[in-house]
Simulated assay, not measured.
Amino acid sequence: MLTMAQWTLLAALAQFALASYEAWRIHMGLASRQWPQVIGKVGKVWQEDDFVQDVGDNEGTHSVHARYRYQVGARWYDGKRLSYGVTDRIRFNEALDLMHGLRAGTDVDVYYDPDNPRRAVLFPGSSTGNVVLLATWIVGAVLTMWFAS
């Protein structure tokens, strides 16, 4: 059976792990701004309602997803990452902005990692949402440890 101190340590470590993942997403988003570009083809694009609502908010949040195909050299790849920025649990108008111009069968710019062409995005960069999540996980971990001491 774990003690309260061990549970606290586990909670803080989990929050630091999530912060590390968010830092990686910010790093990859910044790197993707320098990646080469090819023309790909959109296979499917859709948005899903997440049903997370604030008080007095009728919109809720939404997640945007896409599937696309692109060629680097002689090899074809299937992509599904829109961006390293936040594309889930976003406001409806942000979801619409992401989906603007993305229709099945249309050509799209695909930015791929030259070191790993399997890794690609349609929108290079990261978002302020990434920074907010990074800060939230770090502050949460620090507060968890502080309140436990």
Rank of each mutant, 00 (worst) to 15 (best):
A23R: 02
G29N: 12
K80P: 00
E22V: 14
R25F: 10
L102F: 06
Q37S: 13
L82P: 04
R118Q: 15
V139H: 01
R103M: 04
A31M: 10
Y84N: 07
A95N: 06
A104N: 05
A5K: 11
E22W: 13
V55C: 07
H27D: 04
A17D: 02
S63H: 05
V45R: 01
R25S: 12
A148D: 08
N93S: 14
V64Y: 06
T8E: 01
Y77E: 12
M28Y: 11
W46F: 11
V52D: 09
V142T: 13
G140Y: 09
D78Y: 02
A31W: 00
S83W: 13
R75I: 00
G56V: 01
S149Y: 06
G73P: 06
P124D: 03
D78G: 14
H100S: 13
P36M: 07
A31E: 13
Y77H: 14
R69S: 07
D78F: 02
V131N: 00
L30K: 12
Y111F: 15
T128Q: 10
S126R: 04
T128K: 08
M99K: 13
A104F: 02
A104R: 11
Y21W: 13
A31V: 05
V38H: 09
Q34K: 15
Y68W: 06
T136C: 10
G56T: 01
L143M: 15
G125S: 11
F16M: 11
G79D: 07
V142M: 12
H62C: 05
V45F: 02
Y68H: 04
M145P: 01
I138V: 15
D113L: 09
A19Y: 10
